[in-house]
Design a protein around this nucleic acid. Structure first.
Lengths: 136, 136
DNA sequence: CTGCAAATGCAACTGTGTTGCAAATGCTGG
DNA sequence: CCAGCATTTGCAACACAGTTGCATTTGCAG
């Protein structure tokens, strides 16, 4: 019996093939997945069912739902490490590539009263080695 | 001549009734407005034109664009024409508001060989005082 | 005033997410 | 193991946010 099925059982929801496959996909993914990402991975799944499976996983606490910069919902398995927390991204303005730098995340700045911090992201823009070489 | 029209002129975009009205609405609003909010305020405006006006305001730095918790873009008037240099932004994941923090911009991290730095932006996400109070 | 690029308005389209309903399926009690 | 029943699934249709193409209008420079 799969560990994923156990998670569903413990969370108190019915164990269905769809839920197992979706939760497996979320747990295997290195980053939060959009509905479209999941549809690509789970080729034969119904669109609407996928939405409902995701909602049920969020409702029972097994998945987290967030909005990305494009306004699309992204889902991640609860408890999974979030690799982009405190990460430093380098965005190449030439090729559009995104590189994850090893640099230490910056210290969280002081916030005004009442503000709650969730995530800090340092976004560095410039030209990557490849593009800089091509056409300075 | 309205101050809003001057802002547009200085920003280097054509001064049109649509842009003046939209920017006025953004500057008068206490919180970031969605496309739908603006449509309601500017009754006779064309849907698509409104999208394009908003995009042009963002492109010339007069407005800021963010995503709210429902995945909808929200727009707010930018405080100054060029507020983005080495600035620290706080993005509220609840209302989509963007706040400019006074904190000093972080030191630029070390880049891999050949990479060229152009811009550094620290993006802090969380919940603003208003939203934290509402439904903490 | 005139010309041209930019902005507008309209129609149609894509992508994302939701709702209603009938059929299939997991779980529980016998 | 089987039946009953609520939950889930699949399908169709819908709602909303945002985009694209194109012809027309308009701001602004000359």
């Amino acid at each position: 019996m799969s560990a994923t099925a156990d998670l569903l059982r413990v969370a108190g929801v019915k164990v269905t093939p769809g839920r197992v496959r979706v939760l497996d996909a979320l747990r295997a993914a290195p980053q939060p997945l959009s509905h479209a990402d999941l549809e690509a991975r789970l080729a034969d799944a119904d669109r609407v069912t996928l939405y409902r499976v995701l909602d049920s996983l969020v409702a029972c606490g097994l998945a987290l739902k967030a909005v990305d910069a494009r306004g699309v919902f992204r889902f991640s398995a609860a408890g999974a490490p979030r690799p982009h927390d405190g990460h430093v991204h380098f965005r190449c303005t030439g090729c559009g590539g995104v590189f994850c730098l090893k640099a230490a995340p910056p210290p969280p700045p002081k916030l005004p009263r009442g503000f709650r911090l969730a995530e800090v992201e340092l976004d560095v823009r410039g030209t990557c080695a490849n593009c800089a070489g091509h056409a300075g």
